[in-house]
Design a protein around this nucleic acid. Structure first.
Lengths: 104, 104
DNA sequence: TAACGACATGTCGCCAATCGACATATGGAG
DNA sequence: CTCCATATGTCGATTGGCGACATGTCGTTA
């Protein structure tokens, strides 16, 4: 399992509490990251396509959805991936802190 | 300041305690990451070149160095970058944990 | 009513970085 | 002498992000 890119990780993170559509994901990522990560539409929609292909997200059928809005939710595999990536980030940041503090 | 790739971050981390040459960096990254990250030579030497260009590492002149060995050390900018990236990882991993635990 | 900005999805081409494969050369051990 | 660890490097393919462009709706307001 290779490390996720920051964009991909934020997209998955924004879907953790529940399903959302693309544009809302974009806004939430900006909010979550305190405006530090602002996804371009190019990044967002190609990432969503890739995540669908990988089976990490799936489209939710919503009959009452306005216009051409498409809503996505995490699959179990996607949720596992978020957990694994979070574990990687935690161990990596702890390793880095130890190194910077001088303790091997 | 965009996020560093995992490879680049590990290379910089391995130089935190002191100067090293390329091959030793490769071995230390493998050891630091518990064999999870094994840099190919392609990744290593192109990354070192890039880091030199960016002024994050510099070559150390060693008259007693055996063969064509080249030793590198962190510059002040490079050290700053490691600190900033570590801070980013810490805040990101904390954000992720909060999200997964359901709080916000 | 016309214009504007927010909402909403999508494609395209460029660029940056990783990876595996290949190339080259030295030193030491068996 | 052959093999392996040491040591540096290039090249081409692939992946992913980004900015620009394209298209269309909806609500507000001048």
């Amino acid at each position: 399992m290779s490390p996720l890119t920051e964009s991909t990780f934020f997209i998955l993170l924004s879907l953790v509490p529940g399903a959302q559509h693309g544009y809302a994901i974009m806004q939430q990522v900006a909010q979550l990251s305190d405006e530090r990560v602002t996804l371009s539409t190019g990044t967002l929609y190609t990432a969503l396509k890739r995540l669908l292909d990988d089976g990490w997200i799936e489209q939710v059928e919503e009959p009452d959805a306005p216009r051409g809005r498409k809503t996505y939710r995490l699959t179990p595999s996607g949720r596992t991936a978020v957990h694994e990536e979070t574990a990687r980030l935690v161990s990596l940041s702890e390793l880095a802190r130890r190194r910077l503090e001088g303790a091997q």
